[in-house]
Simulated scan of single mutants.
Amino acid sequence: MLSFLGLTRKSGNLILGYNKNEEAVKTGKISLMIVSKEASENTKDKFKSYSEKYHVPLIEDFTPDELGYALGLEGIAVVGVTKKSMAKKLQEIYSSIQEEE
C-alpha cells in the first residue's frame, strides 16, 4: 500500500499536511484521507469528524515515519488522495492487508 501511495504522490494526486487537507476536505477535493495512528488525538478526532461530515473514507494507520518514507519526506501525519480511482485502489489494497492480519 505504501508503494502505491508513493506512486500516487508522483502522479500529483496527494495533498500533504494538516492544514492543506483540512481545507481540501471542506471543498470536496479529497476522495480518501489517511491519518497516522500516531497523530495527536485532536488531529485524529478532527479528521474522523471531517470523514463523517463530508463522507470521505478515512484510514487511520501507519506511523508518520512509514508515511514519510513512502512519500520521500520526513514524518507525515495527514495525507489526502485527490483522484477517485487511486483512492479506490488504495482502499482495496488496505482492505486486503487487513483481511490477511
Rank of each mutant, 00 (worst) to 15 (best):
E101Q: 12
K83T: 05
I30R: 04
L67Q: 06
G28I: 01
P64Y: 05
S40T: 13
Q98W: 08
A77Y: 15
E38C: 02
A87M: 03
E52I: 08
L73R: 15
N19Q: 14
Y18H: 15
I76D: 07
G75P: 10
R9H: 08
Q91H: 02
I97L: 14
I76N: 05
I34P: 05
R9Q: 11
I76K: 06
K37H: 15
L14Y: 01
K44T: 11
I97A: 08
E23V: 12
V25C: 09
E23Q: 13
A70V: 06
Y18W: 08
K89S: 07
I93P: 03
K26M: 12
D61F: 07
K88T: 15
S11F: 07
G80M: 05
H55S: 11
M1I: 14
E99F: 10
A87P: 05
E66I: 00
G12A: 03
E66A: 13
E38K: 14
A70S: 14
I93M: 12
T8K: 01
A77I: 07
S49M: 11
G17E: 06
G68E: 12
S11G: 12
I76A: 06
E100T: 14
S85W: 09
K29L: 13
M33L: 15
Q98Y: 01
Y69I: 03
I30T: 08
V56I: 15
I15Q: 03
I76S: 08
K48H: 11
T63A: 03
P64K: 11
K26N: 10
I15L: 08
K10Q: 13
G17T: 08
V56P: 00
K48S: 13
E92W: 06
S49H: 11
E100W: 13
H55R: 14
T27P: 00
L16E: 03
E23R: 13
G80W: 07
A39Q: 07
I76L: 12
H55W: 10
Y94K: 10
I97P: 01
I15T: 12
K37W: 11
G28D: 02
S49L: 10
A24Q: 04
L5K: 10
S51V: 03
L7K: 14
S96E: 14
G72Y: 02
A70Y: 08
D65V: 09
I76W: 04
E66S: 06
K48M: 03
F4N: 02
M1G: 11
F47D: 09
P57S: 04
S95H: 09
L14S: 01
G6N: 11
L32T: 09
T27H: 11
E66F: 00
G17L: 07
E74Y: 10
Y50F: 15
T43M: 02
K44H: 02
Y18R: 12
